[in-house]
């Protein structure tokens, strides 16, 4: 009898331990939000939030410093958009190859290739970009310097691939056989069945993979900082073509370039840059959750 209550006491004690461990994630998430907000606060004593987000000039060390990150927001969006324009079609078609076309052996090999692509450190993508891709871009488009928004977009498109491929593959594989057989029985070809039936059946999972890919591109730092040219000039919005082939700076690279030597309001402005990035990613995340919910229904 005594042994039994002892066991029960251990059981309930252990339950408390594992529960507290799990709450660490919740505490961490709140601390992250809390700490970057607290550190960003001093900025807004001096600069109002509108001129921070829509300001086009970033001169943090000038005598009358200016903290406008509109240019960085634009660069983040431009590189992300171009990266997904390149990466999403390739990613989705590769997923179709893996899930529908290839033999088991080959699809396992391609999946493994995708896993390694996901595992390669981002700094190596940046290094590869500056050593090989940037000179090629400079050559092909006759630029003096190959570190441009477009170069960054290409590197980001490589990094978006694994997210899109692996999640789209699972979404396609989860489509029940009955749906496929129905379509085939109606006389559709295999390709028609894939594009008209399977993809529309798996659309919420596939859409979620695209959105996660966007999040990945938006948040990437080290690969981008090496290939984007780091220019603080406000991007020319009337000639996007020229803009893509000139240097720029994103939200993430602004932080990593300047944090170490910053202080005071300047440092607060970098944390505020992080807050803006965090807001972008959180909104994206909420959309993803909605998309997934719809998929479950």
């Amino acid at each position: 009898m005594n042994a039994l209550t002892h066991k029960k006491r251990i059981d309930s004690g252990f339950k408390k331990v594992v529960f507290s461990c799990t709450t660490i994630t919740l505490i961490s998430l709140f601390s992250i939000i809390f700490f970057i907000l607290i550190q960003a606060m001093p900025l807004f004593k001096e600069v109002n939030i509108v001129s921070f987000i829509f300001g086009t000039a970033w001169y943090p060390l000038a005598e009358s410093p200016q903290f406008g990150i509109a240019g960085f927001i634009v660069c983040s969006l431009l590189t992300t958009i171009m990266a997904v324009i390149i990466g999403i079609p390739i990613g989705l078609y590769t997923a179709i190859y893996i899930a529908e076309i290839a033999s088991k052996k080959i699809s396992n090999f391609v999946l493994f290739v995708i896993e390694i692509l996901a595992a390669i450190p981002s700094v190596i993508y940046g290094f590869f970009g500056i050593k090989l891709i940037a000179p090629i871009i400079a050559n092909v488009f006759e630029l003096s310097i190959g570190t441009t928004l477009f170069t960054a977009s290409i590197i980001l498109s490589f990094m978006v691939l694994p997210t899109v491929v692996s999640l789209s593959t699972s979404a396609l594989k989860a489509v029940p056989n009955s749906v496929v057989e129905g379509s085939l029985a109606l006389g559709a070809t295999k390709i028609q069945t894939i594009f008209k039936t399977k993809i529309s059946y798996a659309k919420s999972g596939i859409l979620a993979s695209f959105l996660l890919g966007i999040g990945r591109a938006l948040g990437e730092t080290m690969a981008v900082v090496l290939v984007i040219g780091n220019s603080i000039a406000f991007p020319n919005l009337t000639n996007l073509f020229a803009t893509y082939f000139s240097g720029g700076r994103t939200l993430t690279t602004n932080i990593v370039t300047e944090l170490a030597y910053s202080s005071g309001t300047h440092r607060a402005a970098l944390f505020a840059t992080g807050v803006v990035l965090f807001v972008f990613v959180s909104v994206l995340n909420l959309v993803i959750m909605q998309v997934k919910k719809k998929g479950v229904k």
């Binding site: 919740l26 998430l29 992250i32 970057i36 948040g219 730092t221 970098l270 959180s282 994206l284 995340n285």
Partner: peptide, 20 residues
């Protein structure tokens, strides 16, 4: 919270770690 942590960009983790 777990899903939220997955989506936080690494540079934001850097800012948090630096600050705390």
């Amino acid at each position: 919270a777990i899903d939220g942590l997955v989506s936080v960009p690494s540079i934001v983790y850097g800012l948090f770690g630096f600050s705390l």
